[in-house]
Amino acid sequence: MEQVVAVEVKPVDKKKVKKLWKIALILGVVTLIEFVMAFTLPRGYLLYAGFIGLTIVKAFYIVSEFMHLKHEAKALIWSIMLPTIFVIWLIVALLAEGGSILNALY
C-alpha cells in the first residue's frame, strides 16, 4: 500500500544560509590565526592564553549558532552552561596538582 505524502517545500532562507557560511568562515579564519600564532610567537603562557581565548571564541560560535543554543529558552541555556563550572574547577585543581608533583620530583 504505497502512500503518497504531500509535502509543502518552503524556499531557501538565503539570509540564514549566508549567516551559516559566514560563521564557517569565522571558524576557518580563527583556526588560521592560531596557526600563524603557533609559528611566529615565542612559546609561553601568553601564547597559551591566546590559544585558549581563540578556542573559546570557536566553541562559542559552534555551540550558540551551529547547535542553536543561543536561540533556545533561557532555562535550557543555563542548565547546559552552569554544570561546566565543575570542569573549570577540575582544570584548576589538577593543574595545581601536576605542578606540585613536578616540584616534588625534580
Binding site: P83, T84, V87, I91, I101
Partner: peptide, 27 residues
Amino acid sequence: MWFFLLSDAFTFSGLLITYGFLRYSYP
C-alpha cells in the same frame, strides 16, 4: 540529547585535563 552531550563533555574534559595534569608533572 543536550544532557547526553553535557555528560560526554565531562568525559572529554576528564581526558583533556588528565593530559594537562600529566604534562604539568613532567619537565
